[in-house]
Nucleic acid binder design. Sequence first.
DNA 1: TAGACTAGAGAACGATCATTCTCAGCGCCA
DNA 2: TGGCGCTGAGAATGATCGTTCTCTAGTCTA
Lengths: 190, 190
Amino acid sequence: MDSTEATDRLLEAAEDLFYAHGVQAVGMDAVRERSGVSLKRLYQCFPAKNDLVEAYLLRRDERWRGSLRNFVHARGDDPLAVFAWLKNWFAEPGFRGCAFINSFGEFGEPPPGIAAAIRKHKDEVRAYLRSLVPDRSVADQLFALMEGATVLAAITGDPREADTAGEAAKVLLEAHLGVTTPAANRPRSS
Amino acid sequence: MDSTEATDRLLEAAEDLFYAHGVQAVGMDAVRERSGVSLKRLYQCFPAKNDLVEAYLLRRDERWRGSLRNFVHARGDDPLAVFAWLKNWFAEPGFRGCAFINSFGEFGEPPPGIAAAIRKHKDEVRAYLRSLVPDRSVADQLFALMEGATVLAAITGDPREADTAGEAAKVLLEAHLGVTTPAANRPRSS
DNA sequence: TAGACTAGAGAACGATCATTCTCAGCGCCA
DNA sequence: TGGCGCTGAGAATGATCGTTCTCTAGTCTA
């Protein structure tokens, strides 16, 4: 097993374990066992646990955003598709909320590399939404809805938080276009 | 010092320390030092650390919601006042996000009492918003905005996340009343 | 004043965990 | 073939921390 494969296996194991149980609750020994990579090699690839955590977050950021981008792009880059994707995510078996928010909560004052990875993720997601929604303010409003839905879905376990946020997003987008919004949920007023 | 005063001091110290540094990062010894209550007494009041954490969360829930309720009530129970209150909170010196979301992130699988305290808090806040906003769906949308703004303010450090969410809330409330929303942010179209 | 209970200070215990060290084995090159 | 260097397995180290224990010194009661 060469060094790049060891790194891959370590990151795969780290992601599974860190996301499922939290960073603090997972020992390096658990990562070793799950990855099948020896401790010595582990410390060659990542000199300290925090380095592994940082790499885990950076990798998760790429994959998470890639999945979202693909899904939304396949739906014509409709901003509302973001909330459909969220609902699928919330309903996945191992869903435990946003890895970045959880990590932020785990550290009182996160180490610099980890804090940077967390901020980078949120910055990138915000930038992505701004690329989907011409108006900056509306994009930021949708971003807040996303984050809120994610947090609430994690705590309540109810994927329908995505619907709530999606409906709000729809209203915000339409309102911005200057459309007259009928009194909500009354089917008779077409 | 009688038992109730010891309990008060312990909860005061616990809240300061747990909120500022996270639950895991604070040892019982730090709580002892800050509170001035001996370890023996501490364990008489709270047989295990998790009991102290649970009591901390329950107390924080009461105080946090009390502060919000007072502020909003003084403004005629206007739902938008919630976001003004949030902005003040975000700008406070020691602001570190929502204690409950942070605690949720700290534990991979939170102990039952703690999980219950976290869910209780969110349930109560949601119920409060529903009491302010007649329409259940709109109340839940505002709730998602609140949570999102809180998370983002914690990570970015920017209290203006509250403004973003507040503007969205305003649009949602007006849209629900069937008001024609003009193209956003253009002051000329009165 | 004697004695029983209690509190506080802090040592001690036991567990966990990040990180390093030891050692025995194996391949590789001369 | 003989030694060099790298490897994995797992023991050892050192630190932290939740929890309990010990001991000393009151303090209140009879």
